[in-house]
Design a protein around this nucleic acid. Sequence first.
DNA 1: TATGAATGAGTTTTCATTCAT
DNA 2: AATGAATGAAAACTCATTCAT
Lengths: 202, 202, 202, 202
Amino acid sequence: MSKENISAREGDTTDSVIATPPEKALRADAQKNRDKLLDVAHRVFRTEGISVSMDEIARRAGVGVGTVYRHFPTKEDLFGAVIVSHKARLIEEANQLLDHDDPGDAFFYYFARIIREGIANKAITDAIVSSLNINTGRSEVARNFWRGIDNLLARAQHSGSVRADARIEDIKVLLIGILQATGESGNFPDRVVSILIDGLRG
Amino acid sequence: MSKENISAREGDTTDSVIATPPEKALRADAQKNRDKLLDVAHRVFRTEGISVSMDEIARRAGVGVGTVYRHFPTKEDLFGAVIVSHKARLIEEANQLLDHDDPGDAFFYYFARIIREGIANKAITDAIVSSLNINTGRSEVARNFWRGIDNLLARAQHSGSVRADARIEDIKVLLIGILQATGESGNFPDRVVSILIDGLRG
Amino acid sequence: MSKENISAREGDTTDSVIATPPEKALRADAQKNRDKLLDVAHRVFRTEGISVSMDEIARRAGVGVGTVYRHFPTKEDLFGAVIVSHKARLIEEANQLLDHDDPGDAFFYYFARIIREGIANKAITDAIVSSLNINTGRSEVARNFWRGIDNLLARAQHSGSVRADARIEDIKVLLIGILQATGESGNFPDRVVSILIDGLRG
Amino acid sequence: MSKENISAREGDTTDSVIATPPEKALRADAQKNRDKLLDVAHRVFRTEGISVSMDEIARRAGVGVGTVYRHFPTKEDLFGAVIVSHKARLIEEANQLLDHDDPGDAFFYYFARIIREGIANKAITDAIVSSLNINTGRSEVARNFWRGIDNLLARAQHSGSVRADARIEDIKVLLIGILQATGESGNFPDRVVSILIDGLRG
DNA sequence: TATGAATGAGTTTTCATTCAT
DNA sequence: AATGAATGAAAACTCATTCAT
């Protein structure tokens, strides 16, 4: 598997999916704060894990805690929002990969892609990991995220590149597992990914 | 991989290694409390993870916190004690598997075995996970645990049953990953294990 | 020794040094709480010593423990704050006494002054006592405090009013000793001070 | 002041006064435990201060905590007992000094003697220090201890060697003060004692 | 009588969440 | 709307004292 034979969209960060806030439109300054908070939360959750205090997040975002709570009534909500924004980006990428010539390459590339993203950004790992819990998908985005992979998987299986018995749940487990296990190191685990992909081949 | 062609010791729980309490013999009542505490800690760590408070453990064991601390001076100590008893059992099993006829079967069986144990007991998962971080192995038991797998791995690679480029670190990542990923479900992830094992074959 | 021939500032409590709160201006309510806390801590440390719990201080101040910790992240910090305010006042006074006409009177007055302060406030005693142990002076304030006395001592010795062999360490011991010994009583020990001063005369 | 011109009884440790336990006669083994406990408590209070736990004392004495509490119903009681045994020895010495030729020497020697003892043995310091609190003397021994000094003081004042206005309370404060202040150092504070004695001269 | 296991209130400190300014 | 001060329920751990063995 190589991502070279794929029209890679490395820096593609069109947040079109995130842009839609839950409720009504926010005032400009409120939206700015919300973005700032998500941005800070991303960085902070990535480096420190979910254990950072809300005060710390508020401090780094340069706002009061009250403001954090205005936007995210619960710490879990903030964390969830971080998850969502990351997933949105990846969902888009999955959709584009559906058009790729080689279904096997597309799937394996995406599989490795997610791991790569997660390694480089603990927030994504957290996002994916926690999306297991919200399993059936409390959020639309979480559902879409896994559906994106599922589509690539189905196509790859249909083409015979991926073993027929693999299910999306298994992919979930593999991804979540490897992401959590390598989360701290920061290095892409080539051999391990290679093992997983070989195990997945049809 | 099939565990059937192995003199399986599924229920084998000979705790010969664990049975030896650290110090001298305890008074009857103290021993009863210590056992009760370990028992409660097992169950509680398994279901709720290590986040349970010592007060909660004391409450469920029907003793005062002071008693918990008399037996286990630190929460880490209590957690460690729970872990050690499990690991000790697994280590013993690994050593016995070194004598098995088919090195490949032995390794793959043990690989699955650990996952099975971890699935059944969150404490084991936590233990294995934390032993990765302390990498070189602060504790003798942790070192022995990984050494046991490494021995089986080397033998299986030598016989050609496992791919030559796999290293013990990769096995760690795979185990830790899958254990964390499936920890909540409680079911043995047959297909996922099959994928991993296929990916590991020589 | 007589403090009468000195422009005595018995009640002089110009807190010019203390008056400046550490950081920025606090919100009205926060400042009120901070003041209340310092006030309570003063009284409580004075009467009960530093063994009082933070909960107790919070309770007496009519605030939650969290509030105490917001203002003083550590018990030591709270204690330190109480102390600093007292020492700051005494340091200033020592500096002013350096200008006094009679070096002997100045020294003896200050010597008695400190005792008087310590008698009236157990926190000061504790502070002075603890500043002995940290000998070289962990805190700037502690160093300045003793330097203030040392300056007065040197001047008095040079003028022949105080025995030449006395060293600042001796003064420390005498002050600390008498403060601790009379701490509980609450009365100024006239005769004892007189004895000490006679023993110190040149 | 010199102790050389006095028939010094440096090692004199006849505990005749202590030997009388509060209640009835104890069984031999019980008495042995009581002695052991006092011995340990002496050493331990001296070096660690009153903050040592009862468990620690029991451990060092090689008995169970229960035994400690059988002999001393309260930690305070144990501490009190330590105090008493030390005072008893000093009381005897004071009584013998009443026969000394030079009343001034006798008093000053005893004064220094107590300091010396206290410096060498924090338990004594604690004993004397805490006897201030039990002021009027909850215990007979405490009363006798101070009466011993008072007798020496009166005789010295009558002979004109000690200033007439000094009272036993002042001596208390001076002793307690210097003992507490130099307690940690372990060195006899020559200059400070010299200052005190000069201040006390008639 | 001795032992040491058990107790549990109390200690310092943290942090998600609420609410007055 | 934003702020950040206040809250108080934990959490881990200690230790004087009691009591079953």
